[in-house]
Design a protein around this nucleic acid. Structure first.
Length: 421
RNA sequence: GGGAGUGUAGCGAAGUCUGGCUAAACGCGACGGACUGUAACUCCGUUCCUUCGGGUUCGUAGGUUCGAAUCCUACCGCUCCCA
């Protein structure tokens, strides 16, 4: 492992604003210099795909990997079946079937992000699933003080509103995970969001209890990511941005980043790209000198989309963006539509003349006729490039694109593609 | 086990004592429009469904009443206190 690069890992994180707390900064750097060590990030399969919130710790893990470390990812089949306590309310347990589906989806995505080299993906069900209750109580339970567990922020915040024994125990399971990886994969560092601090330190303490207080085990947390308006990062129109292209198209993903505000864009460039500091500084200058060009946003969108979906997806998203925002969509050919519009939400529609309002509702563009009428009357609906303002007007799918498609726009930039059947 | 609270639209929160003027204040969010840089800010409109006649809502089920989110009964969920 290169000594110079090691020295930069923490410094780089600080510069990028990606460091909240470290248990022992000097100790960690020393461990990294003395040979290859592993770091891990745990993810519970709470959904069938990762979303942008998950990307936050993974970016740091990726930097660790780039710095020469080994990346270890736990897809938490066991912990996922228990549920990491939220500060407010008890979680709903997931069914075993759902957990399996989720594990599979997440494992696929993680593999894509981290590649095969210096990456290990494990499921904690492999060890936690085998642990019997008596072993658990004898081997681990004795090492945890209820008094300490109660003081963890998440637990403390739940004492008023209530917390089940199941969720209360979660921190022990996560601690066992850390120890297990410490033992079998030489994982000495656990990375997580700032809300994971309590769980991470539980793990560090457990390793120290079992392996001696001089055992190398460190924790690192990342600040809570919020946008300039103080809102939690990673939502668009109230929906999560997923990494699964089936759930959030690469085009929508690209647009999410392209639309970041001037206030946030540099922060995200530092955080979500692997661009060098001087390059980011240059982009930061362009935000000041020529904000309208949105050079920084464009670069951010390209970099992150490439990291998650690949170069081809970037090109597709850019081609589509160009067609939608810079061209006259009515002039496009059916072939161009078929080619470029794979990324917008689509729906099937019959080859028959239909009232606009009914058409919009049937296609899922609008959720109710009331809403559809309102939007039509406000001039918010454009069909094949023509603005519709008359609620009694009809849509004839045969007029454009060889009768194969109907292109609907709602508002300024939301497009829907009707595929004529 | 005993006692006290609480459950209102996506969320938060009024309204409940003093039943009708309440499809239900207000805030947030969301959606649309103007402005613009496919921005931010600001401003404006909308935000249960509808064949625009009306229909169905205030944890659930009943009841009282000409009329109930508002009163009564039972049940369910959540919280707190006592044991």
């Amino acid at each position: 492992m290169n000594k110079e690069i090691d020295m930069n890992f923490i410094e780089d994180l600080k510069w990028r604003g990606a460091l909240n707390q470290v248990t022992d900064e000097a100790g960690l750097l020393e461990a990294m210099q003395s040979g290859q060590i592993g770091a891990y990030v745990g993810t519970d399969p709470t959904a069938d795909s990762l979303h942008l919130g998950h990307l936050i710790p993974f970016m740091v893990l990726k930097r660790f990997q780039n710095a020469g470390g080994k990346a270890v990812i736990i897809v938490g089949g066991a912990t996922g079946s228990i549920g990491d306590p939220r500060p407010t309310t008890e979680r709903q347990l997931l069914s075993q079937e759902q957990l399996l589906i989720n594990e599979k989806g997440i494992t696929t995505q993680v593999t894509k992000l981290f590649g095969d080299d210096n990456t290990t993906i494990v499921n904690n069900n492999d060890w936690l699933g085998k642990l019997t209750l008596t072993d658990f109580l004898r081997d681990y339970g004795k090492l945890f003080s209820i008094n300490v567990m109660l003081k963890k922020d998440v637990v403390a915040s739940r004492l008023e509103s209530g917390i089940s024994f199941t969720e209360f125990t979660y921190q022990i399971l996560q601690a066992i995970d850390f120890h297990e990886l410490w033992r079998r994969e030489n994982v000495q560092l656990q990375i997580g969001g700032s809300d994971q601090w309590g769980n991470i330190t539980s793990g560090v303490d457990l390793i120290h209890s079992l392996e001696g207080s001089d055992a190398n085990a460190y924790g690192l947390t990342i600040p809570l990511m919020t946008d300039a308006t103080g809102k939690k990062f990673g939502k668009s129109e109230g929906n999560a941005i997923w990494l699964n292209p089936e759930k959030t198209s690469p085009y929508t993903f690209y647009q999410f980043w392209l639309n970041q505000s001037d206030e946030d864009v540099v922060k995200y460039l530092k955080y979500f790209t692997f661009l060098a500091p001087d390059e980011i500084d240059t982009l930061a200058q362009t935000v000041k000198t020529d904000p309208g060009a949105r050079e920084a946003q464009r670069r951010l969108a390209q970099e992150v989309t490439r990291f998650v979906h690949g170069q081809a997806a970037v090109e597709e998203a850019e081609a589509l963006s160009k067609a939608l925002f810079n061209g006259d969509v009515a002039e496009l050919s059916a072939a161009q539509i078929a080619d470029a519009f794979g990324g917008v939400p689509s729906f099937d529609t019959a080859a028959e003349v239909k009232n606009v309002v009914d058409f919009l509702v049937a296609g899922g563009v609008e959720k109710s006729k009331r809403q559809a009428r309102e939007d039509v009357m406000n001039g918010a609906i454009t069909v094949n490039g023509d603005k519709m303002t008359d609620v009694t007007a009809d849509i004839d799918p045969s007029t454009h694109y060889d009768g194969q498609f109907v292109l609907v726009r709602r508002g300024k930039k939301k497009y829907f593609l009707g595929k004529v059947k």
